[in-house]
Design a protein around this nucleic acid. Structure first.
Lengths: 201, 201
DNA sequence: GTCTATACTTAGATAGAC
DNA sequence: GTCTATCTAAGTATAGAC
């Protein structure tokens, strides 16, 4: 919603498609459905997007762009690791998006996760967004805290795998009929964080 | 499979459909594709299954039937809880299927998980198979072990939520291009089980 | 039981008027 | 930029011959 202003037709098509794809699946939603919901015709959709597949790829591009912009500064976090509690440090790893795009970002992740099994590009997208990129932050941070003796030594990779699989599960249940509740999510995080033991130093 | 003998046409249709649906998604696979892969015509598929939707429902029925048959005996496990290590006891919660249907069962779970967001019956199926039923075993077992003083008191519900979300994530990645490795899975389980602390009693 | 042939519907996509 | 009209391909499903 950067380039076009939030009220443009293009944006309406985009966000409506995100909503429908994430609710019913990419192949289960037609261009006709999207155009009807937006209140335009099929031809207009094709004026803005080359194909249905293009629409999907634009979603992933949108996500990647915003994700990269929201990437926390690793050097700032490494500094935090010297003084703050492990809990505080790891909270800094969260990506924060502008409220108006938060749901869009959530939903694009869902679409990727749903399509990941059948579509190679979706699989790559999900792998990058949920497994690869987060570990680029958590790996050096956890290692640094161990090095500083601020937490007890632990298997960094295992913790990361645990965390990313939980995020994956939570992402898929997001905005669904059986969403993961904040209580459930915090409960799980509490357990995971209890595996990271501060030394008191 | 049970009623028809493993080499019947009906079974071939069924298992081929399971494989294709789980690889590419229900809506992304046509009856034509299934019949072609089996080496029969579309009409023959409709001779055995009333509709494409019926095919999906039969998969869930198949899963439920085999799941119920493989349900571990809770009384036997409660007995184990008195003498065995927590680790051994919780291992007993695993459902074991005959090798020839193991992959089928895995894949049906994947189909349910993929369709759960857009289809109500799939959502119910997944909720039952992955969240509800396993907790019917783990809840009494963990409570019993706490009661006996064999493990330190813990929040049973949180552990269960953690476990079921991990299973959900692992199930979806199963048989995919980026499957969860046995090493990753065991690593996660090791961490989760480390949250359950034997008292030594 | 399995086939051929076909009905019917909907999908993605485009040409060309305005 | 947005529309109407239309093309082509593919989907689910069925009737009826063998």
């Amino acid at each position: 919603m950067d380039k076009f202003g939030i009220h443009s037709i293009r944006d309406k098509i985009f966000s409506t498609a995100v909503q429908l794809f994430s609710d019913y699946g990419f192949y289960n939603v037609s261009i006709r459905q999207i155009s009807k919901k937006v209140g335009i015709t099929v031809a207009t959709v094709y004026y803005y997007f080359a194909s249905k597949d293009d629409l999907l790829q634009e979603m992933y591009s949108f996500y990647r762009e915003n994700m990269n912009n929201a990437m926390p500064d690793i050097n700032r976090l490494l500094k935090l690791a010297e003084t703050e509690s492990p809990f505080e440090v790891l909270r800094g790893v969260d990506f924060h998006y502008a409220p108006e795009i938060q749901e869009l970002m959530d939903r694009i992740l869902i679409i990727g996760a749903m399509e990941a099994r059948g579509d190679r590009r979706s699989a790559i997208f999900i792998y990058e967004a949920m497994f690869e990129l987060p570990s680029k932050l958590t790996t050096p941070l956890l290692n640094r805290m161990i090095e500083l003796g601020r937490i007890e030594p632990l298997d960094v990779k295992k913790i990361e795998i645990l965390l990313s699989n939980l995020s994956f599960s939570a992402a898929l249940r997001n905005h669904s009929t059986a969403p993961i509740s904040m209580e459930e999510w915090l409960g799980m995080m509490e357990l995971v964080f209890s595996l990271i033991k501060p030394t008191g130093k």
